[in-house]
């Protein structure tokens, strides 16, 4: 599992520019260009370290903005996501509080925020196409963005290496 994640990260990092270009070719509507530029903004997070919770969410922080998603391990365990309920933009969420849910055919699983703050954006693409969580959990399948108000909360999270160890050590 650890290896998969590491490889995936490398892969996305390497191919990101290609992927972006593909978007440009595939979609030419102005709205999509907007999305495209947003992706670029997201891409900055690739250089930023990704932190994980024990409940398998990840967060990357750029300035005071955190982007949140679920890990590859989580999406694999969840199976095909068919419904994503994300927190409303403008809502205040607390660290470790339930703020949404992801549903597969098999089951529903709740979403917990790794940090406290105000939700400033949710990934509407994911709401329309929840399978993005399975196909691209670290990129197009991000879930929502939070304006952090307690930076100390990040200290309690695991970095990539610690998370991989956590997965290996059997979280049970």
């Amino acid at each position: 599992m650890a290896k998969v994640i590491v490889q995936m990260t490398k892969y996305t990092a390497k191919t990101f520019s290609h992927t972006s270009r593909e978007y440009l070719f595939n979609f030419s509507a102005p709205k999509v260009s907007l999305y495209f530029s947003r992706s670029i903004a997201n891409s900055r997070s690739l250089n930023v370290e990704r932190f994980y919770t024990e409940k398998h969410e990840w967060i990357t922080v750029d300035g005071n903005i955190g982007i949140i998603g679920i890990s590859n391990y989580a999406q694999e365990a969840l199976g095909d996501v068919v419904y994503a309920q994300l927190p409303d933009v403008g809502s205040e969420i607390e660290k470790e509080a339930e703020c949404g849910a992801l549903e597969s055919v098999k089951a529903a699983s709740e979403l917990y925020s790794p940090v406290s703050g105000k939700v400033i954006e949710k990934n509407e693409e994911v709401e329309k196409t929840p399978s993005l969580i399975n196909t691209s959990c670290y990129e197009r399948g991000w879930l929502f963005k939070v304006e952090l108000n307690k930076f100390d909360e990040l200290k309690g999270l695991m970095n990539e290496k610690a998370y991989n160890e956590f997965l290996k050590s059997d979280p049970a």
């Binding site: 391990y73 365990a77 059997d170 979280p171 049970a172």
Partner: peptide, 10 residues
């Protein structure tokens, strides 16, 4: 308090 992934893995 455990998440399902864990129990399922177990």
């Amino acid at each position: 308090l455990r998440c399902l992934i864990d129990s399922e893995t177990r």
